[in-house]
C-alpha cells in the first residue's frame, strides 16, 4: 500500500498478499459470518468464494476508477452503493446458473454486501491505488477467501457427509459426523485451520530469523 517510506510491492507480491500474507480467512479473520455459515460443503464454499471474489474485483475496480472524483464525505456511501449493485448482479447470476446453489447459500449472497473484506479493500486499497494494482490485489484477496472457504468446506463435507463435491469417498456405510455440518463444526474446523496456519507461519518465520516468534496480533 502506498504509505510513504514503504517499498512499493511488485505485482506478484500484490497478488500473493491476499493468498498468503494477508489471507482474509486465516490471517485477517475477516468475513467470518459467511465463512462459518455456508462452508458446509465444497460446492457451497466454492460458489460463495467465487461470488465474493466477483463482487470484490468488480467493485474495487469501479471504486479505483472513480477514486479521484468522489468527495471524501460521501465516499463510504458511494462504496456501499457500488458494492450493493454488484451483489445484486451476482444474486441474479447465481439464480440463473443454479437454483440449488442459490437456495443452499440463501441469505448469505445478499449479505456479501456487508462482508467487511470488500468494504475494507475498497477503503484501504482501491481508493488509493490505480485500477490495475487494485484488480490484482482484489483478485488475490478473492482467491485467498475462496481458498479459505474451500479449506473449511471440504473438511466439513468429508467428515460431515463422507463426500467431496457430492462424490461419496467412503462407501455407503460411512457414519457422518453430524456436528460438522452444524454451526459448531464450522468453529471447530476454523480453529483447526488457524492452528495449522499459525504453526506453519511461526515455523517459517522462526526458521528464517532463527529466533522464537511472538504471537501476532490481528487487527
Amino acid at each position: 500500500m502506498a504509505i510513504p517510506g514503504q517499498k512499493q510491492l511488485t505485482h506478484l507480491e500484490e497478488f500473493m498478499e491476499g493468498i498468503w500474507k494477508q489471507n482474509p480467512v486465516f490471517v485477517m479473520v475477516l468475513g467470518m459470518c459467511p465463512t462459518l455459515a455456508v462452508s458446509v460443503s465444497a460446492v457451497n464454499s466454492l460458489s460463495m468464494g467465487l461470488a465474493t471474489a466477483f463482487v470484490l474485483v468488480c467493485s474495487t475496480l469501479l471504486v479505483s476508477l472513480i477514486r479521484k472524483l468522489v468527495p471524501k464525505e460521501v465516499r463510504i456511501a458511494t462504496y456501499i452503493v457500488i458494492i450493493a449493485t454488484f451483489v445484486t448482479v451476482v444474486d441474479y447470476l447465481i439464480q440463473a446458473i443454479s437454483l440449488t446453489v442459490y437456495e443452499a447459500l440463501g441469505a448469505f449472497i445478499q449479505l456479501i454486501v456487508v462482508n467487511c473484506i470488500i468494504l475494507g479493500r475498497a477503503e484501504a486499497h482501491a481508493s488509493k491505488n490505480p485500477p490495475l494494482r487494485t484488480v490484482i490485489n482484489a483478485l488475490g484477496m478473492g482467491i485467498g477467501f475462496t481458498i479459505g472457504l474451500f479449506a473449511l468446506g471440504s473438511v466439513r463435507e468429508i467428515l460431515g457427509a463422507g463426500k467431496l463435491f457430492g462424490i461419496p469417498l467412503f462407501g455407503p456405510d460411512f457414519q457422518p459426523w453430524v456436528v460438522m455440518v452444524l454451526p459448531p463444526g464450522g468453529f471447530f474446523v476454523l480453529g483447526a485451520w488457524l492452528l495449522l496456519f499459525n504453526w506453519l507461519d511461526s515455523r517459517k518465520s522462526g526458521v528464517a530469523r532463527g529466533e522464537p516468534v511472538e504471537g501476532r496480533v490481528h487487527g
Binding site: 472524483l69 458511494t78 457500488i82 445484486t88 448482479v89 441474479y92 439464480q95 440463473a96
Partner: peptide
Amino acid sequence: LTLGLVATLCGILIVSAYQGTLAAVTANK
C-alpha cells in the same frame, strides 16, 4: 451529483443484469 451519478450507473447495471438473466432464472425455477 456524485451520489446521483453513481446511483444512476448502478441502476443501469442492475437493470441490465436483471433483464439478461430473467429468461434463465424463470426457466430454472
